[in-house]
Design a protein around this nucleic acid. Structure first.
Lengths: 213, 213
DNA sequence: TCGAGAGTCGTCACTTAATGCCAAGGTGGC
DNA sequence: GCCACCTTGGCATTAAGTGACGACTCTCGA
């Protein structure tokens, strides 16, 4: 079981590097942050940083990805007989503490990176990559829901549109938080669930959201 | 009026470089293509290439962007009293020759780059950037249509979802063309217009597509 | 318990993408 | 022709990213 163990270690190290890199990006800007500085902040050699990340900007990916991971896990558990609205309220509400255990600081950091992506084209890539991942996951989820292959053009359209509105909502909320909005207000589960479910239903022309048989 | 003149020249040079770069990317791969080779193919110095493009991959942007420019111009001319379906059929049909005058070779090249973006993460950025531009334009168009500010969260959702389905359709068609489909068949105006209009209407929950008063 | 094998990390040398700087040349207005 | 302005090329330089090798650690099997 070496592979399993090392995979966990690898993920943890990547997250560690990502945290420090994101912090530096936020405080002194992307261009002004060198690979050497990231390595030094984490306490590893520069070579190790490049071993785990293909580029400087991609160092932000794990942190950003973690921001959407919770939502994706919840969506993967979406049972056929339940509406999206109900499912999101239930799961996001029940798992609230689990979500918090993902570390509030990381969530804030992720929002900062998304914010930075507005002005730093280098970081925009990381954010768009994360959204791309979301879209891929949604491809599977929606394909399964509609009982169609993920390659199906309509499934792809729905997945793309859904991922897009999820992204917009994420950017919106992130901006609000960074502008000083109360975290608890933003994290208001039922409101967030409603808005998300409604956005996805609308973006798919009503094809995704209802219970199926 | 030096400035205006130089802007045209600048755009033409960028496109020229972009063409050569895209050709090289397609034939020998992105990693195997150096900035020096691009410069040599165009007939300018390496320094000039870096003066006009911030990175190697971004050299593909103008070609990719040109692929969506026609559609965006048409959408900007969309009058209130007409349905999207009708408008697209009319404009894309009438302007068919203009579209062709944008150089068929460029359109093919753009499709190749989009295809390459599937496997080359470096190029993916260029494609996503082009889609980002599309979304931004749609923000203005849809905001104007709905008589709401472009900042409005619902306008943003609709624009994002629309841009997403346009992207999916573009990828789909590009893949079909490169797989050997007939260009004329793909360029079948009414079919394309219908599919596009339907996709946008669906992605916006029916809020964008009808005539408005 | 010991050693083989696999995996990861650090150091050093190296390639190449990308920027700053300055001098040369071309263009338009006077 | 001369001056102001912009673009280009060449050179030096920084920083991103890779390859190669030796040292260290962990685990498995004898």
């Amino acid at each position: 079981m070496k592979g399993g163990m090392s995979e966990q270690r690898r993920a943890r190290l990547r997250l560690e590097i990502s945290r420090e890199a994101s912090r530096l990006f936020w405080t002194r800007g992307v261009a002004a942050t060198s690979g050497d500085q990231i390595a030094e902040a984490v306490g590893v050699s520069t070579r190790t940083v490049w071993r785990h990340f293909r580029s400087k900007e991609s160092c932000a990916e794990p942190v950003v990805m973690q921001g959407v991971a919770t939502l994706l896990r919840v969506l993967h558990r979406w049972p056929r007989h339940r509406s999206l609205d109900d499912h999101l309220s239930l799961e996001l509400g029940g798992r609230r503490h689990e979500a918090r255990s993902v570390d509030l600081a990381d969530e804030l950091l992720a929002m900062k990176m998304i914010r930075l992506a507005d002005t730093e084209p280098a970081l925009r890539t990381a954010w768009l990559m994360a959204c791309d991942q979301t879209e891929h996951q949604l491809l599977l989820i929606i394909g399964d829901r509609l009982r169609r292959p993920p390659r199906d053009i309509e499934v792809r359209r729905h997945a793309a549109a859904s991922a897009a509105v999820v992204r917009v909502l994420g950017e919106h909320i992130g901006a609000a938080v960074l502008a000083g909005a109360d975290l608890d207000e933003v994290h208001d589960v039922t409101s967030f669930s409603r808005r998300l479910a409604h956005a996805i239903r609308t973006a798919t022309g009503g094809h995704v959201g209802d219970p199926t048989l």
